[in-house]
Structure formats: structure tokens, C-alpha cells
Design a binder for these strands. Structure first.
Length: 613
RNA sequence: GGGCGCGUAGCUCAAUUGGUUAGAGUACCGGACUGUCGAUCCGGUGGUUGCGGGUUCGAGUCCCGUCGCGCUCGCCA
């Protein structure tokens, strides 16, 4: 696990609130405090027993302070007690802050100019031998960390993450409050929504057989708050989606949810940029581009094969469908689309490695992956012999240079973009092409409003069914012609940094007639509309203002700020890939009484033993 | 639901082609030590090799099943 702690601009220490236990924190004392009598409390981070002198590094969330137990100053009883101290015991001490001698300075610690010569020691709490110690030098498997999360969270990097998370949410509230936003809570026990992810459901005791759903997001409620005249709403809110987790995804996650009335796309974008600019400045000391560039969805897909391109490196996709027709290569001539990317320095890959790439591409649905190497003399190896007639134009169009590897995908556009888009990411990772300390920001705009679901043979919303189409495309909502419907663009926008989508939103539909046309196009009939979204549709009858908003993924934002690729690192009490909390043991069976009250009977799938309660 | 990887001492790991009593570092326990800061030195305790079954003269190692963790595809408006 790598953290770029060095990017944290300054060491932040807290002021201790003076109590009977302490006058200062363990990260607070400096050379200027020499001579003071202080009290400290914290955990024994490490001990070094020299028989006569005993050194203790005392830790709290603020840092480490070295304590010295010298029988001459602390007395024999305290010295004997000090020799018994072990890792993670909780102690309180009193003593004098003294300057360290020149040879005893510790430049690794902010408190390294001083130490505290102890006069009084109180053991506040002893600890069993811990399963692991919360030291950054230790590497501990993640499941052990999750079982004893309260110990893992004592580690400096985890504390730094929790502190960063707090500072970011405070900035969000302060910044948006200053702009006139109100934080308004929305229900967690709510109505199941038909589209989108699988819902977590909660049985109703009072209405047997009925269920609440936990919100996938407060989408409908924040729109209703706009209809309610609240004008500017924000909430830092938990969302729930019952889908399999990933490295950057948990079933419950946190969003900064924002909605505004009487705005257009650029107003929401401006508010979001202002907030992100302030967060990056205050947390990392870095500036964002002003403005953050916009890119059309169509351009992102055709040039990068992704709707969230990582712009820290090149390797653009180049369309060579026309050139491919001039070759005798059957795979190229028969394909609907042929595109290529030039991998810088990829020419050093071995035959074995490029063969492995082809296998990898097959896993993504491609029939294969054609490659050739670019040398000073022209194209060499791989499919070079087929490309001789177009070699010069190919090199010119792709911008490839000596030592690059040209990779080709020939297929339907969806497969071509998927394979080359993923290949871009893989090559950047394998060849280390992405500078880790840079941030490449981007707004992706003009998404298609609908996508055709080949399996269900119907249109589905790209974003969600309340997203407004561009004004110039309104008339196309009456069409059922697939190319026409697919050409409708929406007022949706995603904010992307380094290939990670950290937020997205849209201007919503505020007119009843438009909303009904969209439902109709999605194949949701009037009865279903009324049953699923009746309350929103009702609200649109009673004077809905033009409105729109955005939701930022707080967990992913913190991941980027902290330089981790593991979402569990930025959540205090996260769950595993099977949705378990290894510390509490959730989920677990409940007793029969609880089931009866909830009017629930458990029917296990065949072959599954009942869970232990 | 599918694919890949991992599971050995409290922790992190090793163990040759299947071969003697499963080792090391660290932690822990005992001892020594007045300037350490990942202290040092000496000695010691510590194992259901995730679990169940199988193959074999012999299994940490091979096979089958199962559980857990991770990555990933599907999924995630």
C-alpha cells in the first residue's frame, strides 16, 4: 500500500483541550516548550529498555513524543512500572519537557528536538499482546486489519486519511453553505426504484409483506426539494446499491449530493469546479486548470475508447478503417471499424508478451489483437507484411515513432473502443506511463440520452430517466427510429480526473410532457409510471422550476487525494467483497422472533446450510 | 454466477521432484545493559500447514470438495 504522504502540504497538529489527563497532545511539543511541566496521555507505541534508562514513544492521533524514565527523576516505583509497559498500553504521564542533546535529536519526528522526562506514571489501561502493531513499517494482511479495525485505524496513515476525509467534508459544507446551499436530510427508508442497481430492501413490520428500499441515491427527493422551493440543496449522504463490490466500489458509499434551481449546465459546473478547486488547494496545495476543459462524449469514445479518459498520457485511438480497405488483410477489410494506438516504447515487448496481449484482448470480446513494431526502417514483425501498402500513411496518421508498438482492433465500434480503451490503460500501467503526482481534469459532456439494450431489446437511460435532453433534440423524442433516438444528446455531465469518474449530474426534466415522452420511449407505461414515480410526476404538475445538480463520489475523491487504489483504505469500517464486516460479523442470521415480527420466512437456496446466528 | 491468485507460529514469510523432528525474522517470556529512537546482546516458549475427504510406504507440497480473503468479468440508471 503506497501513500504519497509527502504531498500533504503541512503537518497539522491539534490543540489539546486541557483535562485531568493531559495538557498537550503527543504531536504538539517543540523546542520552545523546553522547561514546561506537561501531562500527556496516549498509547505505548514502542519501548526501549536499557535497564536503567527506559524510553517510551507515546502515541496519540497527533504524533509521537519520546518519554524518558530515569530513576533519578521518576523514582524507583515509576521506573519499575515503566519497565513493564508493553505495546498499546494506555498511559498518562507528567514530566518536564527537556531539550535533547545534539546527538540525541530525532529528525524523523516533528517532536524530535525534545523529550519528556517523566516524574509521574499512571497506567490507564493495559493491552493484551496485539495481533499486530499499528506501525507503518509493518505489513499486515488486509483481513487481519479488518478484523481488528480499531487497531489498524491507529496507524498514522489511516488517521491521516480520516483527518483528510473530515477536512474535505467540512470544506464541502462550508463552501456550499457560503453559496447559499442548505443541507437537508432525505429518507433512508424509501421506495424501491425499478431502473438501475439492485436495491437493498427492508421489511415493514406495520405493513406485512411490504418493503422499504434503501436509497441508491436521493435523486427523486432532491428534485422534490427543488419543486418545494428550497432552491439550493446539498447533503453528504450514504447511498446503497446491492451489487458486487470492486476495488473502488462498496455496496454502501458516500456522495456529496447537490441540486440547484434556475440553473443551466454551466452553473452547476462552475459551482462544482469552485469547490474542487478549493479542496485541491487546501488539502494538496495544488491548483486546478481554470476552466477545466470539456470534451464531448463522442470524442472521448472515438479518441480514447472510454467515457472517462485518462489524459495523463497520449496513445489516442486513430481511425484507419479507410486505409485498412487498401490492404489484403481479410480481418481488416471485412471489419466495420479498424483503429490503432501507438504504444510508446512498446517495441521492446517480446513475441510472447504481444501474444499474451492478444489473449487478453480476446477476454474482452475481441477476436484478437494485431500488432506491429515501428522501426527507423518502417514496420517490422507481426502483421507488418499486410500493411506494407499503407505503412507510410499509418505511421503518419498514428504519429508513431521508432520503438513504438502499433496495436490494431478490427470489429464493431463498440468492441474496438472497449479493447483499445482498456489497452491504453493496461499499457500505461505496465509501462508506467502515467505520472503519479499529476492530475488530468476533464468534464465529459453531451452524453447520449439513451442507449439500446441489446438483451432486453429496448432503450435504457444512459444517466437516469429524469435527465433532460438538449433543447435542440426535444423534437426527436417522438421518434422510435433507432438511429434518431440514439442521436439524442442529454444535458448530463461527468467530472473525470486521471481516468476516474468522481462525479456526474445533469439538468433535469422539469416539464411534465417531456418527462412522459421519456418514460414512453423507455417503455414504462402510464400505469407503471404512476406506480413507480407517481409522486415525482404529481410534483411536476404543480410548478417545478428548471433545476439540475450533481453528485460527487466522496470515497473516490478521498482515494485520489490520498493516492490509494483501494476504497477500503478511505472508509473507517468497510466491508469485504462478500459484503461482510469482519469486525462485527455482519451480516448474520436473526432469531425467529425477529423474523416473525417482520413477517419474513427464510428460504435458503438448495445445498446452503443455514448461517450461524 | 464465471475466471485467476492467495491461505504454514500472534504477525510477515521460507520449506528442493512428494521424503528425517515444518524453519527464519519479528512479536511474546526470562536475563544483561545509562542515550536509545525499527535499540543491542544471551536464552526460551510458540504449529489442527483454513476445514473435510482422497491418492501414496510417506502429503505443507498432488487430486476432489468446501470455507475465507483479494483482483477481475458479468453487474453497478
Amino acid at each position: 500500500m503506497i501513500y504519497h504522504l509527502s504531498s500533504i502540504a503541512k503537518v497539522i497538529t491539534m490543540e489539546a483541550i486541557e483535562t485531568r489527563y493531559r495538557t498537550h497532545t503527543c504531536g504538539q511539543l517543540r523546542g520552545g516548550d523546553v522547561g514546561r511541566t506537561v501531562a500527556l496521555a496516549g498509547w505505548v507505541h514502542s519501548y526501549r529498555d536499557h535497564g536503567n534508562l527506559v524510553f517510551i514513544d507515546l502515541r496519540d492521533r497527533d504524533g509521537l513524543t519520546q518519554l524518558v524514565f530515569d530513576p533519578d527523576t521518576c523514582g524507583k516505583a515509576n521506573h519499575d512500572e515503566a519497565r513493564k509497559l508493553r505495546s498499546e498500553w494506555v498511559i498518562g504521564i507528567r514530566g518536564q519537557v527537556t531539550a535533547r542533546g545534539d546527538e540525541a535529536l530525532n529528525p524523523k519526528l516533528p517532536t524530535g528536538q525534545i523529550e519528556v522526562r517523566v516524574t509521574d506514571l499512571t497506567v490507564l489501561s493495559i493491552s493484551s499482546t496485539p495481533p499486530f502493531v499499528p506501525d507503518e513499517h509493518e505489513t499486515v494482511s488486509e483481513d487481519k486489519r479488518l478484523v481488528h479495525r480499531y487497531i489498524d485505524l491507529r496507524r498514522a496513515s489511516m488517521q491521516q486519511t480520516l483527518r483528510t476525509r473530515h477536512r474535505v467534508t467540512k470544506l464541502m459544507r462550508d463552501h456550499l453553505s457560503d453559496l447559499g446551499f442548505w443541507e437537508i436530510e432525505t429518507p433512508f427508508l424509501t421506495k424501491s426504484t425499478p431502473e438501475g442497481a439492485r436495491d437493498f430492501i427492508v421489511p415493514s413490520r406495520l405493513m406485512p409483506g411490504c418493503f422499504y428500499a434503501l436509497p441508491q441515491s436521493p435523486q427523486l427527493f432532491k428534485q422534490l426539494l427543488m419543486v418545494s422551493g428550497c432552491d439550493k440543496y446539498m447533503q453528504i449522504v450514504r447511498c446503497f446499491r446491492d451489487e458486487d463490490p470492486r476495488a473502488d466500489r462498496q455496496a454502501e458509499f458516500t456522495q456529496l449530493d447537490v441540486e440547484m434551481s434556475f440553473v443551466d449546465r454551466e452553473n452547476v459546473i462552475a459551482v462544482t469546479e469552485g469547490l474542487l478547486r478549493r479542496i485541491w488547494k487546501e488539502i494538496l496545495g495544488k491548483d486546478l486548470p481554470d476552466p477545466i476543459p470539456h470534451m464531448d462524449y463522442d470524442q472521448a469514445m472515438s479518441q480514447y475508447g472510454s467515457d472517462r479518459p485518462d489524459l495523463r498520457y497520449g496513445m489516442k485511438l486513430h481511425d484507419i478503417t479507410d486505409l485498412a480497405q487498401q490492404t489484403d488483410f481479410g480481418v481488416f477489410k471485412s471489419a466495420a471499424m479498424v483503429k490503432t494506438i501507438a504504444v510508446p516504447g512498446g517495441g521492446k515487448l517480446s513475441r510472447k508478451e504481444t501474444d499474451a496481449l492478444a489473449d487478453w484482448a480476446k477476454g474482452l470480446g475481441a477476436k484478437g489483437l494485431a500488432v506491429t513494431k515501428v522501426t527507423a526502417a518502417g514496420l517490422d514483425t507481426g502483421v507488418a507484411k499486410f500493411l506494407a501498402p499503407i505503412a507510410a500513411k499509418l505511421i503518419e496518421r498514428s504519429g508513431a515513432g521508432d520503438g513504438d508498438l502499433l496495436c490494431f482492433a478490427a470489429d464493431r465500434s463498440r468492441i474496438v473502443h472497449k479493447v483499445l480503451g482498456e489497452l491504453r490503460l493496461k499499457m500505461a500501467r505496465d509501462l508506467n506511463l502515467a505520472p503519479s503526482s499529476e492530475f488530468a481534469w476533464l468534464w465529459v459532456v453531451n452524453f447520449p440520452l439513451f442507449e439500446f439494450d441489446e438483451e432486453e431489446k429496448r432503450f435504457v437511460s444512459t444517466h437516469h430517466p429524469f435527465t433532460a435532453p438538449l433543447d435542440e433534440d426535444l423534437s426527436k423524442l417522438d421518434s422510435r427510429d433507432r438511429p434518431v433516438v440514439e442521436s439524442i444528446k442529454s444535458k448530463a455531465y461527468d467530472i473525470v480526473v486521471n481516468g476516474s469518474e468522481i462525479g456526474g449530474g445533469s439538468i433535469r426534466i422539469h416539464r411534465m410532457d417531456v418527462q412522459q415522452k421519456v418514460f414512453s420511449l423507455l417503455g414504462i407505461d402510464e400505469a407503471a409510471q404512476k406506480q413507480k414515480f407517481g409522486f415525482l410526476l404529481d410534483a411536476l404538475h404543480f410548478g417545478a422550476p428548471p433545476h439540475g445538480g450533481i453528485a460527487l463520489g466522496l470515497d473516490r475523491l478521498i482515494m485520489i487525494l490520498r493516492g490509494t487504489t483501494n476504497i477500503r483504505d478511505v472508509i473507517a469500517f468497510p466491508k469485504t467483497q462478500s459484503g461482510a464486516d469482519l469486525m462485527s460479523g455482519a451480516p448474520s442470521a436473526v432469531d425467529d422472533k425477529q423474523l416473525r415480527e417482520a413477517n419474513i420466512r427464510v428460504v435458503l437456496p438448495p445445498g446452503k446450510p443455514p448461517a450461524a446466528s
